[in-house]
Design a protein around this nucleic acid. Sequence first.
DNA 1: CCAATTCTTGACTAAACGGTCAAGTATGGA
DNA 2: TCCATACTTGACCGTTTAGTCAAGAATTGG
Lengths: 193, 193
Amino acid sequence: MSRPREFDADLVLHQCMDVFWTKGFQATSYEDLTRTTQVKKQSLYGVFKNKRALFLKSLALYRQENLAVLEAKIAGETLPLRRLEAICEAVLYSDEDARRRGCLMINASLEFGSEDADINREIALMAERTQELIEEAIREGQAQNAITSRLSSHELARYLGNAINGAKMMEKSGASREEVSSVLRTSVALLET
Amino acid sequence: MSRPREFDADLVLHQCMDVFWTKGFQATSYEDLTRTTQVKKQSLYGVFKNKRALFLKSLALYRQENLAVLEAKIAGETLPLRRLEAICEAVLYSDEDARRRGCLMINASLEFGSEDADINREIALMAERTQELIEEAIREGQAQNAITSRLSSHELARYLGNAINGAKMMEKSGASREEVSSVLRTSVALLET
DNA sequence: CCAATTCTTGACTAAACGGTCAAGTATGGA
DNA sequence: TCCATACTTGACCGTTTAGTCAAGAATTGG
């Protein structure tokens, strides 16, 4: 029919996501993207209609991948408190470079504020699913009397989600892995009865 | 001696800080600054040497003002837990527009990451002083057996500082005042013995 | 083999950016 | 009064930006 595409669109999207993650939306230029992907501007325009659409696709990809990793990592944990700790560990990045980039969702959330509805929908999808996983563990913990019932599981889940967001920010601003991990362990420890 | 300056440098710095706070560093252009201040570009260059220097001065001003307000608001509170709650209330902004801008320090921290040493020094100065105020209240609370001693005052202070940072992010991303306030109240409540 | 279709390429555009320059202007001390 | 000094003004510079255009190239169904 027509000339076949010479690049792997999924791979290129992945690479673009990495650039956005490292540099942010505004600070990423088409030159950055073409240099990294080796795909010319007009070809990117052919698949993704513009920079913003490409960024939205990047957010969706990030969300899917991160949630998949998160759910896999906590699948084995049966004890509620251990599962909460696993969630906290899972959101921390291992290598120094990944940590300094912070979390793409958090970065996007702060870069766009509350102005862009599409961006915020992507962010909300990720936050809501994470919150669900947390709340589930908390409900079980409360049922087993391992976690305080002074406050509702919903309130406690929002509390822990907030602490995790703070931790992701700490990572980006240069805190050591141990510092960040310590804050999260404290946040979980305070939930115990 | 020489021709006197026609504008109030302090007022102009204040106005520039407001623009940076609303738009961020990168997204703020000299046109934004001159439109707001009614001061021409070259005159701004005369007082502040360039955009980055102007931003650094803005951060310092923000820090001074916010810490002054914070210290004033908690001065009256003698009960440690009430003082912690006052700290949490003080970091929340009242009107909707101010809330949507988030915290200039947090915004800057995420926009610059850990790359710019001068920027990070400004941010650290603010964070350290806030942390001191929190830790002081926690130590008193522990002495009075109102706050748990299972963890050190230092660890708990970092924990609460982190929760506050998360709350500031929530504000910017459009959460309602009540939601944010609720998360912080939970964070303080969990400190109680 | 050819033609419809899509992809690739590099040149191009118009606007915006941070920053500089030079010429004009107001001030107070000598 | 005059002059050194610092401020004001608008034009200017080179660079970078997101996005467009048009011409050429590769593919496969007919």
